[in-house]
């Protein structure tokens, strides 16, 4: 806001604003992750999972922009993961399985979304949870197909036709996760700045106005829902390819809760928030589990409590307020 605008009549309380160089922060963050993965090799696995979850949490962020919380979003992650588990023996190519998992996640999102975008708030949350639990039950009970809670071991994968050794494969998976995180992050950022993305935020505050502008709030939410499901599916394929073992636990409600947890921890103010949250979540989990094996959930809970009480904008909010404070 310019000085002349601040003086303009009609404005009650001008607010200072400063555009943060998000692209620069994203590149710096990516470089830091690569450095960490190089310096501490065993962190590659942890960071790959964190990036994959960050991609899934980007989907949660979209729905949060519309004021909706999904407590069942890990069902899309499970769809992506089981796509890899089921198809890897026949189609071992990771670069084919990845878009296939995202596509199937998106298709399920479209089918569910057509029905679920009619609902708001607690009904939206609970219907997502209920549907994810239906999927969980199917994965658990259809033993002949899914091997129940034993899960499915993902068979050997090829990457662009090659079968890399274990160390190289870890780097390839890490690189793939990082590339997808950056790619989806850019897409989400562009989407949120588009008329559709702005209208999505309007669902949270002024849905009536949207309708009286001739805009279907349901269609706007459906697009976001399918987009988030695509990201959930892609995240699931990354998880399956990294862990090489897929179980129904992926669709369980606690897994969905974990995604919401990460979204709040990271903050919904930017596409970088989910990755900040996911990295912090995985690192705290690993180190807390090593330090106090029986009480690591308590430490995670404590961290979230502190964030909610003292940094409601999440880690992204903390970071931006510090950066703005310095400027």
């Amino acid at each position: 806001m310019s000085a002349s605008d601040r003086d303009a009549p009609g404005v009650a309380a001008p607010r200072p604003s400063m555009r943060l160089p998000e692209a620069g922060l994203a590149l710096a963050g990516a470089a830091a992750l690569v450095l960490a993965a190089w310096a501490v090799p065993w962190l590659k696995f942890v960071l790959t999972i964190a990036l994959a979850k960050g991609v899934a949490v980007l989907g949660i962020l979209l729905l949060l922009r519309a004021g909706q919380v999904s407590f069942g979003h890990s069902m899309f992650l499970a769809v992506g993961a089981y796509t890899v588990a089921f198809l890897a023996p026949a189609v071992p190519e990771a670069l084919l399985l990845l878009p296939l998992g995202a596509l199937l996640g998106g298709l399920l999102g479209l089918v569910i979304g057509l029905f679920i975008v009619r609902y708001r708030d607690i009904f939206f949350s609970m219907l997502n949870l209920a549907l994810s639990m239906v999927l969980y039950s199917l994965l658990e009970k259809l033993y002949d197909l899914t091997k129940g809670t034993d899960g499915i071991r993902v068979s050997a994968l090829t990457f662009a036709g090659a079968v890399p050794d274990r160390e190289t494969q870890e780097w390839v998976m890490f690189g793939l996760a990082l590339a997808l995180a950056l790619g989806f992050g850019l897409l989400v950022r562009a989407y949120l700045a588009s008329p559709m993305g702005r209208a999505l935020a309007g669902i949270k505050t002024r849905e009536t106005r949207l309708e009286f502008m001739g805009v279907s709030a349901r269609r706007v939410l459906l697009f976001a829902y399918v987009f988030s499901a695509v990201m959930g599916g892609a995240a699931g394929t990354l998880v399956a390819m990294t862990t090489r073992h897929v179980t129904p636990q992926l669709a369980y409600w606690t897994s969905s809760g974990e995604l919401v947890f990460i979204a709040i921890l990271g903050g919904a103010g930017s596409a970088l928030g989910p990755f900040l949250g996911a990295t912090a979540f995985e690192l705290v989990r690993v180190y807390a589990a090593a330090a106090v094996a029986d009480a690591w959930q308590m430490i995670l809970g404590g961290v979230l409590l502190l964030v909610i009480l003292f940094a409601p904008g999440g880690l992204w909010g903390m970071l931006t307020s510090r950066l703005r404070g310095r400027a």
């Binding site: 897409l187 989407y191 588009s194 008329p195 559709m196 993305g197 702005r198 935020a201 505050t205 002024r206």
Partner: peptide, 24 residues
């Protein structure tokens, strides 16, 4: 749309009328 600027509010209404909803 309280979280948007006045310009963004107006532009959103114009975009809605134009029916151009490219997401990117």
């Amino acid at each position: 749309f309280s979280e948007h600027t006045v310009l963004e509010n107006a532009a959103l209404a114009i975009a809605a009328h134009a029916g151009l909803w490219s997401p990117l």
